[in-house]
């Protein structure tokens, strides 16, 4: 509180000051990281103090989150399989969850759709759905765990991503597979290579033995049972093998980037 008091300008109503300041700040609704952070940030801005010079809880938390990425990568066992379940354990109905309503989910024409492949791969040609459907598929019944805490068991069928990476001649020493999606705001998410090569990480074409419905990401989602749900992109339109960290829709807003289970 001492620091806060020293930043106050005599004769200025602090409530009005904060209200004015928050009005010019970007999209608070989504980026309110820390309660109270906005007012402290607004005060330092208006008093002309360099925010980076002062203690910033938000910056500290981001650094610790990066540290946690490293810790999780270190304890990630590439041979540890996510537990599998009998079909009788499948959650019905399986929840739809996204930052948009189901009505706003992308509607994709499977005949027009192509998976674009970019980056550190030998063969950059795009793939039609028909071509992808011809690749060998496996089924897995695993638990989907949402960052919100709830979980649901589902059945996903598709091609192990590591098989596809081999087919396209991807550089498996690259750091990430970065996925981009078809929805309006351009969902995207980076997947670390160790997880991309995990035997259960899958290019999913079916849910519960049926062609992947629109709700669950038609025509293709990436199912990653060793990650939280938001690291399982739906409506995928392109994949880039890269050494650059390109960020992600939720990762950029503060969700831990590794988010391993």
């Amino acid at each position: 509180m001492g620091r806060l008091r020293s930043l106050l300008i005599p004769g200025v109503d602090k409530q009005l000051l904060v209200r004015d300041a928050t009005r010019v700040m970007p999209d608070l609704a989504r980026r309110r990281f820390i309660a109270g952070g906005a007012s402290l940030g607004a005060l330092t801005l208006l008093t002309g103090c360099d925010v980076t010079d002062s203690f910033s809880a938000e910056e500290m938390l981001k650094q610790i989150s990066k540290f946690n990425d490293g810790v999780q990568a270190a304890i990630f066992n590439p041979n540890a399989l996510a537990p599998t379940f009998p079909e009788s354990a499948i959650t019905k109905p399986f929840p739809f969850n996204a930052y948009y309503a189901l009505n706003d989910a992308p509607t994709i024409d499977g005949k027009e759709w192509k998976l674009e492949v970019r980056g550190l791969v030998d063969n950059k040609r795009s793939w039609t759905l028909e071509e992808l459907y011809k690749l060998p598929q496996v089924k897995q019944v695993t638990r989907h765990i949402c960052v919100e805490g709830w979980s649901a068991i589902g059945s996903w069928t598709g091609t192990p991503l590591r098989d596809f990476l081999k087919i396209i001649g991807a550089d498996s020493r690259a750091k990430y597979c970065w996925f981009q999606c078809a929805d309006a705001e351009g969902y995207n998410s980076p997947l670390d290579m160790a997880t991309a090569l995990h035997p259960q990480t899958q290019m999913t074409f079916k849910f519960g033995d049926e062609i992947l419905p629109r709700a669950y990401g038609f025509p293709m989602k990436i199912r990653v049972p060793t990650k939280l749900g938001f690291k399982n992109p739906k409506y995928v339109i392109s994949m880039e093998v890269t050494n650059d960290y390109k960020g992600g829709f939720w990762e950029d807003q503060g969700y831990n980037s590794f988010s391993g289970s």
Partner: peptide
Amino acid sequence: ASPLFDFTFSKSITLGGWLGGALLWHFA
């Protein structure tokens, strides 16, 4: 973000502002 029971905690006594901020605090 996903209550186990029929109640939620008042925002005035929680930390983080939203789920993402709270997770950052919790895992720090």
